[in-house]
Nucleic acid binder design. Structure first.
Length: 437
DNA sequence: ATGTCTATCGGGTTCCGAAC
DNA sequence: GTTCGGAACCCGATAGACAT
């Protein structure tokens, strides 16, 4: 193994840059050095940025990146000769594309991480091989395919294997584990030649345990990884990594909640998850869902139950609890119009208080209905739940309906359901929601 | 009991940047 | 230019677990 040539990176620049790379390009087996790998990812990012801004190439098809941009992200000023040597290595090295074949396409091998390059004192000119062009430009849904890689975390790693494992695991954070690889496949992916770390013991010591320990103990890392070995007797025949997000109490480099939709969340929601949610729901819907989840968490808090904010937010957003709140508020508002209650009228005429009063009102309604409902015999409770689900046929369709039916009494723990059940009962019991207050 | 495999540790080499 | 120290890597020794 050639020596990593980036141990000169001592100064860490503080930036807020997020690097996006498409998943299929992440699965590349590596025989390049860490510095070359980082350089290549910076070029990929610059390529995508220019393409998104409709910046054309020059008449010979080159795109350019400034030397100062490279210096800023790498953290020091590499010599021009070093950069030329590394770009040459990138041009020569074989690249394995789509290594895990996760989209059903076959693995392909190409010559060259870049196809052409030219370096001046101030800029690097580069062209990518056509396959990379195609992948980078042919994305129909960039939001769904692109993963976020925090450059500060990535550049923080000084070991080649740390960086590769980090990037592999970061890509699979959403799934919680990486694909299974045999030991030979893992060696190939990591760019280990058969003569290097011939014994698994040594491979494990230097390429698996040491880098994972480094990732897990790093203050700056936003994930923890755990290698899981598959054994035949004692012999390790394959492995995968478990990936879990690491909650950071303070992390100055990135904005922990970049979109205002997540402003009310009490824990950090991973940027990749934010992207996914934003692709499915509007900011307003997400914001409302988080508000509703917070209400639900407050109720749990009162009952002194342990609260897993991350899991509750995930459920709230994917089940769109916010929509339930909107529906509930419209019911609530129309009921209010029929009631000659001065207090309620006053509340309605004070928009600055509306949200707060809605929340506290709803909490009281919730408790009152819950008390009356749970006082009923259990079979009556079952019947009412089934009746509500049947009445809400627009909301509960197909699989979703079956899931809710299967939950039955446990369904009362779901705010998304009780926001429907209480109005249903109010109508059934001739007990307008506002009168029960 | 024996052989195989893994985990762990210490010592050594090489490379490179920083300090002088 | 020389020295020093850190990181990455290599090698061997030892102990323990497990299969046969």
């Amino acid at each position: 193994m050639t020596k990593n040539n980036d141990s000169k990176s001592v100064v860490r620049k503080v930036t807020k840059r997020q690097i996006k790379t498409p998943q299929s390009l992440i699965h590349i087996k590596h025989t390049i050095s860490l510095f070359q790998y980082k350089l290549w990812i910076l070029l990929l990012q610059e390529f995508k940025r220019q393409f998104d801004l409709n910046e054309p190439t020059d008449d010979r098809g080159f795109r350019y990146v400034s030397m100062s941009y490279i210096e800023q992200h790498i953290g020091y000023a590499p010599s021009r000769q070093d950069i030329i040597d590394d770009l040459r290595a990138l041009r020569k090295e074989e690249i394995c594309f789509n290594y895990f074949e996760k989209d059903g396409n076959k693995t392909q091998y190409f010559s060259g991480f870049i196809s052409e390059m030219k370096v001046t004192r101030l800029t690097i000119g580069f062209k990518f091989p056509s396959v990379i062009d195609d992948v980078m430009l042919g994305l129909d849904d960039a939001k769904a395919i692109f993963q976020m890689l925090n450059w500060d975390v990535f550049n923080h790693f000084s070991g080649k294997y740390e960086a590769i494992i980090y990037k592999l695991c970061k890509d699979y954070l959403g799934v919680g584990r990486t694909p299974y690889m045999t030991v030979d496949e893992f060696r190939e992916y990591m760019g280990i030649k058969p003569t290097e770390y011939a014994e698994f013991m040594k491979l494990n010591e230097w390429v698996i345990r040491k880098p994972t320990k480094s990732i897990n103990t790093s203050d700056i890392s936003d994930i923890t990884v755990e290698p899981i070995y598959s054994r035949n007797g004692r012999k390790v025949i394959g492995l995968h990594f478990l990936v879990t997000p690491k909650h950071q109490t303070s992390f100055p480099f990135i904005e922990s909640q970049t979109n205002p939709a997540f402003a009310h969340a009490k824990v950090t929601i991973a940027l990749s998850d934010q992207e996914t949610y934003l692709a499915l729901f509007s900011s307003e819907q997400i914001s409302l869902s988080i508000d509703r989840a917070n209400q639900y968490c407050d109720e749990l808090k009162k009952k002194e139950k342990t609260i897993n904010y991350g899991a509750i937010y995930k459920t709230a957003i994917t089940e769109n609890w916010g929509q339930q709140i909107i529906e509930q508020r419209s019911i609530h508002t129309s009921e209010q119009l029929d009631v000659s209650n001065d207090t309620l009228k006053n509340l309605a005429s004070q928009p600055q208080n509306t949200k707060k009063s809605d929340e506290s009102d709803w909490s009281i309604i919730h408790q009152k209905f819950l008390m009356r409902f749970t006082a009923l015999p259990e079979d009556e409770q079952h019947e009412l739940i089934q009746g509500c689900i049947k009445a809400q046929k627009d909301v509960f369709k197909g699989v979703m309906r079956k899931n809710y039916e299967a939950l039955d009494l446990k369904i009362l723990e779901k705010p998304s359901f009780t926001t429907l059940l209480w109005p249903y009962l109010a109508e059934l019991w001739q007990e307008p929601i506002t009168k029960i207050l």
